[in-house]
Write a protein that binds this DNA or RNA. Sequence first.
DNA 1: ATATCTCTTAGACTGCGTCTAACTATCTAC
DNA 2: GTAGATAGTTAGACGCAGTCTAAGAGATAT
Lengths: 133, 133
Amino acid sequence: MDHPAVVRLLEAHAIRPSAQRVAIAGYVLATAEHPSADQVWRRVKLEFPMVSRATAYNTLKLFVEKGLLRELVLAPGYAVYDPNTAPHHHFLDEDRGSIHDVPWSALTVDLVGDLPDLEVRNVSVVLRGRRRS
Amino acid sequence: MDHPAVVRLLEAHAIRPSAQRVAIAGYVLATAEHPSADQVWRRVKLEFPMVSRATAYNTLKLFVEKGLLRELVLAPGYAVYDPNTAPHHHFLDEDRGSIHDVPWSALTVDLVGDLPDLEVRNVSVVLRGRRRS
DNA sequence: ATATCTCTTAGACTGCGTCTAACTATCTAC
DNA sequence: GTAGATAGTTAGACGCAGTCTAAGAGATAT
């Protein structure tokens, strides 16, 4: 995605396109790597050194709020970002530590028992295992 | 579990019962808190200051190898220990930010399509929503 | 008793996340 | 157009989780 396209995309989501935000968006909206916030920060810093950690974290949270990104909370205190906001699941390769998308249609989830006091809005499934070579 | 019982248990699993190992076992084999290795270390240090971090980590790994504990890898770089693990899912309360256990039997996951090159060992489902008062 | 093997130590290092106080840029009201 | 308010950014400190290493203490075997 080139620079003006990123700017238009941000503006279309009511996000003021500061230089830092454009730099962060330019990377994170195009990657298939499922990076953590820290990984985004370090990567963007290479080409745009004047981005602070706090800005990277704030910006990613903002993008999630505005629907540009999806946040995948793998564990309390460890989240990962995904520009694919269409519904899908995830596979976590426990050997390599890599994360892959799994089509939404690859599995179904059925609520069997009743969870009377829980109002479920969203179901996210994380498969863990290893990848056969 | 009292001290001699811990010693017997360790010996029954072919683990030499050093003072550090007994202290660690005394806590982690009795807790229901699903602590991380760091949490175990800090907790044990309170009553037994002469335990180093490396020893806590080494000892927990040893206990897992010997079948005394189960290690739950929640994400790459974040594991949790459980002396008596029952599989369960999680419900994330988006209002309060709290996490609740959901019984394993409350839902079923069916793999519909085929994922030929993925060897799935574990399926974890995160339900998101709000808790009805 | 000595040589070997096992166990433990302190501390340095990385990754990830959160927070704050101060600074700059942008917008709005007048 | 300037003043004040709001929005955005910064560096750095802090906490938690995990890994590693060099060195030494302790147990075991012969």
